[in-house]
Amino acid sequence: MQNQQEKPTKKLQKCSVLGPVAAIFASANTGSWRLERPEVDFDQCIKCGTCARYCPPDIITIDKTKKECVSFDWNYCKGCGICANECPKKCIKMVPEGSEA
């Protein structure tokens, strides 16, 4: 970055930032909200990435090199079902959380 400061201060002084600031980048465990969970039928999946594109918490990863190319971060998936609704092949289905695949 150029021109940030007109003149550098003579020496660095340590000073406390006063006031209500948040300086920790953190995430809530929204995965705990989930009542339904997306399940992908990889035989039909065309690896298009539509599910990842529309995922509100952005927790879907597509790895085209794998057969099981779609993975979800269960810490944050709220189970909203947008991925299943938008899948052009309709190969994602929402199953009750806790049920076995």
């Binding site: 940030q4 000073c15 930032v17 006031g19 600031v21 948040a22 300086a23």
Partner: peptide
């Protein structure tokens, strides 16, 4: 002394 809005040192203020 209490500068918060600095892209070199991000913080969320208020």
């Amino acid at each position: 002394k209490n500068m918060y809005l600095d892209t070199e040192d991000p913080m969320f203020c208020c």
